[in-house]
Amino acid sequence: MVMGLIDLKNVTYTYPLADEPSIKDFTYSFEQGKFYAILGANESGKTTLCNIIRGFIPDFFQGELTGEVLFNQEPLSHYTLSELAPYMGYVFQNPFNQITGARDNVFEEIAYGLENLGVAKGDIEKQVKDIMEMTNIMSLADKNPFELSGGQQQRVAFASILALSPDIFIIDEPTSQLDPQESERIFDIIHQLKNAGKTIILVEHKIELISEYADEVLVLEEGRLICSGKKHDVLSDISLKERQIDLPETTLLADALRKAGYNIPEKLITKEEMKAALMAHIKGVSQ
């Protein structure tokens, strides 16, 4: 196996008092600069996997963890949770619980992590302003984070981690409370992060956005990795539909068209790809 930035080898984890492991014999290598999307039904182990990668398991959540988790070829257990903060950013599912409560306005809430890292005051100001503009929350700067709506809190939580500029972003459903326009903006930022060489590990249900932006897709089922690889290979696999995995509309349409006898190329997952294929088909028919 090629050594990646984060390597998990035969990882199995069982929560305290649980009968069954939540993650079963998971082996995968996450490489630098790639955008990974994790898919799976509810309770399939997506968040647990993120917690293992970030080191919250077994450092914070007890239970039984077997196998190896390596960060830069070094056991993750060599780092404390806070020591990992400059390298691994984690955006949690629930935005409300990501408001620290240590600061009474959005600007300082975003600056909080940088304060802990000891970044110079002038740099904090610049970084926070840039991030706030990027995430479209400049107008919230003086507001109390607890008085924001769920969607606004979600953007503040994301901005707080962006400000730290870690190498790896572990993001658990960052758009669950956002409208389509803001979701698109978040994915655009994630895409920019990827282009800047950051590694993204994302749990998300908005499959259309994943089909557009991700590099690789991992599919979990009852804690087991059932499918992984390049997004075109995974998301065009129609058999996943039977396993309660959402697939892009393009995949479903392509399958339906193929079944109806149309000659549609394999591995189409985005609307643009489908549009190009249909145009080619129409052109072929008209000639």
Partner: peptide, 9 residues
Amino acid sequence: RALTLEARG
């Protein structure tokens, strides 16, 4: 929230 704090160093 405790984990959030740790994630922010």
